[in-house]
Design a protein around this nucleic acid. Structure first.
Lengths: 343, 343
DNA sequence: TATTAGCACTCTTTTCAGTGGAGTGCTAAC
DNA sequence: GTTAGCACTCCACTGAAAAGAGTGCTAATA
């Protein structure tokens, strides 16, 4: 059987109605509200076909129909294709230039959540290719150095290191100059063993200090990768959707959102059901790599700050989420982010 | 009527049983399991008295009894008085000396949550009296300074400031010396207008820079106070208690825990139902200053790091929480914190 | 031939009465 | 003062019946 124009129209009407109400849609509803001018009986026949083709499901014999995952997928692909060539009108979400990326991301997660009424998550930028911009050692106390590392994108990392022997302020000054001259502009991968031993030589008596410092530096940078920062917001929005609010489902979902390490699965796989635009992915129901979200849909988008800084924004909502709005909001947001940081 | 010894014993037995089961407690249960050797009929008479006195409640005519808020309060006061003079055996929770207080607090919230199976929150230390320990300006780019402020307790704040005119590296060096010499060891209140204008004089051409920098410094410090950092953890633990799991209650509670600004109410009021130990407060049901927690109990404890750094730890659970464990855990934790930082 | 009206049928949801169980309060006996 | 016994109350659960929503099928219609 083929999905002709009329079937498509009916399918879209069913899905749209369901997105609004969250209730199974009957044939009469469609015949009344869609502009097809067909009787409920005709719609019934078509619905029967659509069900056979797998686009819609009957929860039970005498209920209306709801979209299946396949139905949602049809709808989403459709939407995205239609939107693709349109110019997105500016959203209210404005990005202010902020010097600290973490704050920006946290703030953005909140904005997105209140704007969309879904749960949101943003993974902090990973720094595999990130260039070191600036290192500053300061002697704060006897035998205690403060290390401040600034990487591309103006992300700041601090840590303290306790030394075994004290150093003078002059030593620290020289070390700063040495480190900045040798390391600035390099990525973490480029700081290899050869370079390190050369540094140790140049540092003279402070070999040990150099070692400790470099450890901290690399840890500070890699910390980002290891315990990948993930910010979530609007988790309780899920209670706005009855189909997700029952205690068990809500509990599982919220648990995943609270223990952010459980979300990692979403940010690794990049070979999943892709949509024409490589930036944006839509996972419907079982397509999601995370078990506790199998009753939800998840939309993710990748963003890029500067050269090597990439991250992912995700929105989690009911399967009947407003895909159109979500996709276009994400698209706008990501392109704004890219613009802001690549200007 | 008076609460004699036997009534007390029965009341305690009722509450303890209810804490375990979460179900209304009948007279027969008490007569069987408590060591009172009384028949259910006698217990019934006493229970009737206890109800009249307001310590227990009957959900409906033919149900057992559950504790009223007044009953819980009796129980809690009792527990705390008993525990008061005991030496608390060491808990498994160990505090590792960590250089960054924020991380420590976050980590502690998590530990507490998994340990107790309740929701936890910790307010970051407020810094009214905090002394400045160290300031470091660094030129990161043309016309852009990185300011790192370390205050007592080794809390680090960073921010960037954009200058209108560029400064040389030497200038920055001198500024650093000037600022550290003048400001270190002072509290934010002590950095007053007189001091500021004196600094401006000494700085010579860099008046404007000084102004910008001082603004950032004071903002960096006060930021802590303004958007008081609050860390929460274990929010989804509430689903472990059926009486809190129904959609509406859970939704409200989780919402409060997510929008942490709603929690502030808990950290201001210090004149509420106090318990003998000034450090620890127990709010039962309606005693809580936060509406969405009126079906819960909240236990808070204050901690002190160094001179002026104070904060609050809170535990949120069902009214039938294990007060004994919670109070003693909190007491141990707080005293460990105090010891660690005051040594 | 495609569409539509009509009707029997199915399944869920709601309502309601009936039943069993848990626990009480009261009275009388110990 | 304590306890045994019993009538009573109320909730939780069950199953039956009624109401409602929506379908599938058939026969009539344009």
């Amino acid at each position: 059987m083929e999905l002709d124009a009329r079937k498509e129209k009916i399918l879209k009407a069913i899905i749209q109605t369901y997105l609004e109400t969250g209730e199974p849609v009957g044939s009469r509803t469609i015949s009344k509200y869609s502009d097809l001018k067909l009787s409920s009986a005709t719609i019934r026949n078509e619905m029967s076909d659509l069900e056979e083709m797998g686009y819609i499901i009957q929860p039970h014999t005498s209920a209306g129909r709801i979209p299946s995952d396949k139905g949602y997928r049809f709808y989403v692909d459709q939407i995205i294709r239609e939107k693709e060539n349109q110019v997105n009108e500016m959203q209210e979400i404005m990005i202010q230039r902020v010097d600290r990326v973490e704050l920006l991301l946290k703030h953005m997660a909140q904005l997105l959540a209140t704007n969309t009424n879904y749960a949101t998550m943003i993974s902090g930028p990973t720094s595999n290719l990130t260039k070191l911009k600036f290192i500053q050692l300061s002697k704060v106390e006897e035998k205690k150095l403060l290390i401040v590392v600034v990487v591309e994108g103006n992300i700041i990392r601090n840590s303290f290191v306790n030394l075994e022997e004290d150093v003078t302020h002059e030593d620290v000054l020289n070390l700063n100059i040495l480190l900045n001259n040798s390391l600035n502009g390099l990525t973490i991968q480029e700081i290899n063993l050869g370079m390190i031993s050369k540094l140790k030589e140049q540092a003279g008596i402070h070999k040990q200090v150099i070692e400790l410092v470099l450890n901290e530096v690399s840890e500070a940078i890699q910390a980002q990768d290891a315990d990948l920062q993930i910010y979530t917001s609007g988790a309780t929005n899920i209670f706005k959707y009855p189909e997700l609010s029952d205690t068990q489902k809500a509990s599982q979902l919220l648990n995943t959102l609270e223990h952010k390490e459980l979300l990692k699965g979403l940010f690794d796989d990049k070979q999943l059901p892709a949509v024409s635009d490589p930036q944006i992915q839509v996972y419907i129901g079982d397509e999601t790599p995370i078990q506790s979200m199998k009753d939800c849909s998840v939309v993710t988008a990748n963003y890029v700050l500067g050269d090597g800084l990439r991250g992912t924004i995700g929105i989690i909502g009911p399967k009947r989420m407003d895909y159109e709005k979500v996709v276009s909001t994400l698209r706008t947001l990501v392109s704004q982010l890219n613009d802001t940081f690549n200007q």
